[in-house]
Design a protein around this nucleic acid. Sequence first.
DNA 1: CAAAAACCCATGTTATACCATAAGGTATAG
DNA 2: CTATACCTTATGGTATAACATGGGTTTTTG
Lengths: 155, 155
Amino acid sequence: MRKTFLFMDTIINKVDAKGRVSLPSDYRAIVKELSTEIVCYRSLTAPCIEGCTEELLDKLATDIENATDFFSETQDNLTNLIFGDAKRFTFDSTGRIMLTEKLLRYANITDTAVFVGKGRKFQIWNPENWEKEEARIRAEVLKNRPTLAHKTEAE
Amino acid sequence: MRKTFLFMDTIINKVDAKGRVSLPSDYRAIVKELSTEIVCYRSLTAPCIEGCTEELLDKLATDIENATDFFSETQDNLTNLIFGDAKRFTFDSTGRIMLTEKLLRYANITDTAVFVGKGRKFQIWNPENWEKEEARIRAEVLKNRPTLAHKTEAE
DNA sequence: CAAAAACCCATGTTATACCATAAGGTATAG
DNA sequence: CTATACCTTATGGTATAACATGGGTTTTTG
């Protein structure tokens, strides 16, 4: 029995004409162990698809309920944006999910997809876009070291 | 057996001459698993129909009882507004519900309806109105990032 | 009796479950 | 140390089931 469940690594898979793509086997193992499902949506901050477990999204729903009022505009806006865009993806017996036109178009993915682990979440990128993005991130981190040590005082 | 039940995704369905519209199959699955019913009412904040499980509405009733006084005007107003408008909708063998004139008119829906998942709730929109609303929300959220991280201190 | 609502059936489309194959990696036996 | 058998994973193709939607019929209701 595992204690930790993290989406990791960078995996390149083919996307067929129907939009089917194999979910990396490590990711599938997590889904199985947690007996949950994969949920994907358009990233709010980058031109890529983002995914996580339904479990995590359920926790988010609860957090939003607790943090904002039932009738608040914030709650309305957030839930519309997040859950309106998210979609459950179950994988078939061979481990594939079928991405939708909307998601593929948004991330500009045609025949190849790059899965990038992000811990509790993961992202799916167009290969060229990911290459550029990774270079950008590395450069930025080198220039301006992140400070995890003082995270409690962080703004 | 699922652990989480979230209304998600954005689905466009036809409304026929009788006012019948297919409830998205994912939504139906939730209703079945929870052995509850769908309840719809006019949104308090937007020109759309809002729906949820009868279960959630029951929880809301409890919340209102706890948050307001039995004889208070607030409780009176809230309960009148919500439960006076809400109505149960059962779906037929093919998964369709029959929306009422009142609801359709309020949301300005004629022949096409857009279901928008909101987690524990969902909304039903006129397609053009939803398109505008989504754009508005995206702009607003991007401009002013929500801060769930510090939710415990949130106003 | 008239209008509406619930029920039933039919159809085209789409997604999903399943099968087969290929490719890569690992362990075991020669 | 190498070759072979086995296992896992990725990928392509296909058949089946599920779904949305249109139309009609019966039952309920006012």
